[in-house]
């Protein structure tokens, strides 16, 4: 029998490519959870994930009310997709998600980034996606350390006990 040997996770490199509340928060919770455990955490925001670190959009993230099979009405009934098309519904649902999270002491995006960076976590933006969306470093939150290519990010993600996570 081979001996089982566990290597502890020491570093996580997380890539976030989507802008919905749930995708961004999955990323933020994982990054913060890592620094809370004393691990290194590096986060790379790319494509629509850039919204989470763009000053103009970071506090206005939405959750999709159309094409989201997990979506339910309060009480648990299925949420009709057509209802999600009505103007204002997505904003209302998103506001409700944010208020529910606040009750659980899950902070808004800017404060969450404060928490992660205070614990030594590092935030990066994707150069290619920045060019695509015509964004400049000054459009991004001050939490962002640098704008990198994916290759540069990979080069930071190595070492024993390192994991790369894509959300």
């Amino acid at each position: 029998m081979t001996e089982k040997k566990d290597t502890k996770v020491k570093k996580v490199a997380i890539i976030c490519a989507k802008a919905s509340i749930e995708d961004v928060y999955a990323t933020l919770v994982m990054a913060n959870g890592a620094v809370m455990e004393g691990m290194e955490a590096k986060v790379f925001f790319t494509f629509f994930g850039l919204d989470a670190i763009t000053k103009k959009y970071m506090m206005k993230l939405h959750t999709a009310t159309v094409g989201n099979p997990g979506m339910r009405m309060p009480g648990g009934l299925p949420f009709p997709t057509l209802l999600g098309l009505i103007p204002g519904v997505e904003a209302g649902v998103s506001a409700m998600m944010r208020s529910q999270m606040n009750q659980l002491d899950i902070p808004p995006v800017d404060e969450f980034l404060d928490m992660i960076t205070a614990g030594g976590g590092e935030i990066y933006a994707c150069k290619l996606a920045m060019d695509m969306f015509k964004l400049e470093k000054k459009d991004l939150s001050d939490h962002v350390i640098d704008v990198l290519t994916i290759g540069e990010f990979y080069n930071m993600a190595g070492g024993e006990g390192s994991q790369i996570i894509f959300t």
């Binding site: 620094v35 809370m36 455990e37 004393g38 205070a118 614990g119 030594g120």
Partner: peptide, 10 residues
């Protein structure tokens, strides 16, 4: 984090 390095809450 500075007071309790490496997992302050725990």
């Amino acid at each position: 984090y500075a007071l309790f390095p490496g997992g302050p809450l725990k």
